[in-house]
């Protein structure tokens, strides 16, 4: 764990257990994620992926164990601190969770407004992020008028607008068709390559097994396997999978160029 060649740990959970009533959802889970790392959290529905993520963004507190995110420690958190923790995280979900009553711009801007940022800075940064996710031209549209992929890109823009060090993604592609799924994953890689650590939960092992990223398997509340691939495998496999996803989607685009 103190290997100086390993990236600095940006967040981790230690001996984490969570129980709802009699049901053990997580059992002695240990997981650390390094700075700028990309980790897939894979497991069937009900394995405890969402609960693990909720514990990391401290929507729930563990029955046992500890969550450490940056300088925030779960056993030492006051309610007030949680807001400040959330500002250091970006979070996206399967169901996008956009504010239906505001346009795209405001949906992204809200994450900065809560920090008390000036209007000038908000405008500048939101425009920049919307351009990056390719939705600048739809900034005045309401979320309902957008496609699923576009809505998820709005959510991603909101998640990264404060330049977080960590992005948590809970089944971000669960509601999307394969083509759009590839686009979203590609976008997450792009965000990751800019230095943000990403933890993406998914039930779809097939989807992510060939990207060459670290994959953590979660089953019945315990970590079954933590698979890290070597650098060679990583490069080869990732290229392969972009082709694989592209082929599944049937558009034949070569996504290596975007990387």
């Amino acid at each position: 764990m103190t290997d100086p060649l390993e990236p600095r740990k940006i967040f981790g959970v230690y001996h984490l257990s969570k129980q709802y009533g009699d049901r053990m959802v997580l059992r002695d889970v240990n997981l650390q994620v390094g700075n700028g790392e990309f980790v897939f959290l894979v497991g069937p529905s009900g394995a405890g992926k969402s609960t693990l993520l909720r514990l990391i963004y401290m929507d729930e507190s563990p029955n046992e164990g500890q969550v450490i995110v940056g300088s925030f420690v779960s056993t030492n958190m006051k309610r007030h601190d949680i807001s400040y923790l959330r500002r250091k995280l970006g979070i996206i979900f399967q169901d996008f969770r956009l504010l239906e009553d505001r346009d795209v711009f405001e949906n992204v801007a809200i994450a900065m407004r809560v920090t008390g940022e000036t209007n000038y800075n908000i405008k500048r940064r939101v425009m920049q992020v919307l351009t990056q996710v390719g939705l600048y031209h739809k900034r005045y549209d309401r979320p309902v008028t957008l496609s699923g992929g576009e809505q998820q890109r709005v959510a991603i823009a909101r998640a990264v607008v404060n330049s977080p060090e960590i992005l948590l993604a809970d089944e971000p592609t669960g509601n999307l068709d394969p083509e759009v799924t590839a686009e979203i994953i590609q976008l997450l890689f792009r965000i990751n390559s800019a230095g943000t650590a990403v933890l993406m939960a998914t039930h779809n092992h097939e989807l992510v097994k060939n990207f060459g990223q670290r994959i953590v398997f979660l089953r019945d509340g315990t970590i079954e396997e933590d698979r890290r691939l070597g650098l060679a495998a990583f490069k080869k496999d990732r290229i392969g999978v972009f082709q694989h996803v592209g082929r599944t989607a049937g558009d034949g685009r070569d996504m290596r160029e975007d990387r």
Binding site: Y57, R86, R97, E100, I110
Partner: peptide, 16 residues
């Protein structure tokens, strides 16, 4: 409720 949950997710303080 949904909007409030979202605000909490993006780090809004209770006062906000």
């Amino acid at each position: 409720r949904k909007s409030i949950e979202i605000l909490k997710l993006v780090g809004a303080t209770n006062r906000f």
